[in-house]
Nucleic acid binder design. Structure first.
Lengths: 352, 352
DNA sequence: CTGTTAGCGCCTTCAG
DNA sequence: CTGAAGGCGCTAACAG
């Protein structure tokens, strides 16, 4: 087979290259490049017209790979999440996409299932694909090897001019666009405390995630400050999924809580389902609250009280920040996103 | 500034290139390439070792862009959806990602908001980024200009060796991995008919989508076959969102249906919410059914009866098919996915 | 089995 | 203002 000519079948179809445009316009490739790449190098008006016209006529579209190879800028961003099908990530990714798309960048998206090796592989793949920036939406995996290897990859990447941004709890030191996980959790717990609850159960996230620790600390702090202390029986581990939340609620029930706080909405939704299934009323018998305020929170079996995080906007803002960083325009002051409580129908005073 | 050398600061950091490896191993670049790219060209065992060892030591990782430029294969796939934050798409994308990742391909994901220009822009961007395949998960926009321009872009793309696959109703002729939208809808409608409903309302999808027409036809056919015919008052237009479903339900209520079928789960969930909000019981007063069986369908205010589509598997299967196509291994027989009814708690006999 | 050469498509000095 | 030349990192004939 011939060299990579893009020729297929008998047609000899080929995407027009800069050379074709140059030839058609009767100028050199350099000149064509200058007008088509928006270079600041001066080009006479007539020539520019001819080139533009030829490009238009041929339907020329610059090859991004070639351009990237030559300029060391691919206009591409890699996004790491734990699972795109999780609404939390999906909503953030959507925001990132909007920002990136509006400024002519494309997004690579990869789910790591919070598996150390997968996540490292994803990072390496992003680097190999020469992305301009890497956005770690996924919270760091709480594993020394992960942090060590990820740091090595990311440090190298940055030394080369790459931009790294984190959007959740992460041990890696990089610009971070985050909201307050701990404060947010304290918000819900305090809300429940104010309603009069004393036996407040907590469904934690997966133990191998940094964000799990931070959110849990919010719960512990709030409980301790009120002099209630942390009853180990009232804390169970979940996995951020609906199913996991349901199972966790089942275990938690043995400790007879009057309220349950889940580390995310998915688990809260699962918990509500389980409670309802075993004949408990929510919030009549037990209140339930979540964290994130994914779109479905408001449409769960019982509309969920939760900590609102503007996921979509967070993504958009994150995207804009990354692009600004890439353009060498760091924002004067780094934005702060505050989490706020949204009280819906899943929480009320404890049964008397 | 110097040429694109990847040099930053004083360090002169640079990602090791094949040349560096070759030099370190004392061989020519071609030899290094041969062992590192898994070429079939013979290389002596000792040399191979030396190259491998040098690559390992330097932490060499081939530059995908360069490789892609040289081979005309980027190991990259472009995925077009209407909105990644919509669970329907998110779940499919997740499946595609799994398949792609497991075979060393990366995914570009873009949401078009079913906007003609955005969608065309996305397609062009994919081509410019030299993706190997384009997967149209999004149903076609029902607009002649869209179809014409999209076809032009895709035809060119394919003439160059690109693979195109559709995963929903699409006017563009390409391999399609789909399920039966019409049959699926007939399934739910028939289910309701069997329960004794006669005034069955329908919340259609956005009018500018092909899939909307197809699903709606399923409703119309089922209604007509039973001699009920289609009462225009019983059909309203939605937009595939929860909010839209709620609003549509409100309008639909004027026609006093005993059951409502929504063209997707999101709208069904919104409809249920609205019904409950205005004091109707579901399914006591009115039954509601959806389509897709997104994860949340089972956790809605009233667990939703719907048409199950194995979204995640669909994505995985689709990913595998595309990769096979790319490898020149078209499957002997094209898989068929059947939609099936899942009866949960949102449907029952009409009130007497 | 190994090296040399050319080229993928584009950008960017450097002359003119 | 324009063009020629070299290079980004890698692969693929083509000799030897």
């Amino acid at each position: 087979m011939s060299h990579a000519t893009g020729v297929v079948g008998e047609e000899g179809v080929k995407i027009p290259s800069l050379r074709d445009v140059a030839r058609a316009a009767g100028v050199s490739v350099s000149t064509a490049s200058r007008v088509l790449s928006g270079s600041s190098h001066p080009v006479s008006e007539p020539t520019r017209r001819r080139v533009l016209e030829a490009a238009e006529r041929l339907g020329f579209e610059p090859n991004r790979l070639a351009r990237a190879l030559a300029t060391a800028r691919s206009r591409t961003i890699g996004v790491v999440v734990h699972d795109v099908s999780d609404p939390y990530y999906a909503e953030i990714v959507r925001g990132l996409e909007d920002a990136a798309g509006s400024r002519d960048h494309a997004l690579f998206v990869s789910s790591s299932d919070r598996d150390v090796d997968k996540e490292l592989a994803v990072l390496r793949a992003f680097v190999a694909n020469q992305v301009d920036a890497i956005v770690l939406v996924a919270s760091a995996i709480d594993d020394p090897r992960y942090l060590a290897e990820a740091s090595a990859i990311l440090d190298r990447f940055r030394a080369l001019g790459g931009v790294v941004m984190t959007m959740s709890e992460h041990g890696y030191a990089a610009p971070r666009l985050g909201y307050e996980n701990r404060a947010g959790t304290r918000l819900v717990v305090t809300h429940l405390l104010d309603l009069g609850h004393r036996r407040i159960g907590y469904i934690a996230g997966p133990p191998d995630l940094l964000v799990t620790r931070v959110r849990q600390r919010g719960y512990e702090e709030a409980m301790t400050e009120l002099g209630l202390g942390v009853d180990p029986e009232l804390v169970v581990t979940g996995d951020f999924t609906i199913e996991g939340g349901a199972r966790a609620a089942e275990r938690l029930l043995r400790a007879e809580p009057t309220a349950i706080v889940a580390a995310n909405d998915m688990m809260a939704i699962g918990a509500i389902r389980h409670l309802l299934d075993v004949g408990k009323r929510v919030p009549g018998d037990v209140s339930v609250a979540g964290f994130d305020d994914i779109e479905f929170a408001a449409y769960a079996a019982v509309p969920l009280t939760t900590v609102h995080v503007p996921l979509g906007e967070l993504g958009q803002l994150g995207g804009r920040l990354v692009l600004d960083l890439l353009d060498g325009n760091p924002p004067e002051e780094w934005p702060r996103i505050d989490a706020r409580l949204v009280v819906r129908e899943s929480t009320s005073a404890p049964p008397t």
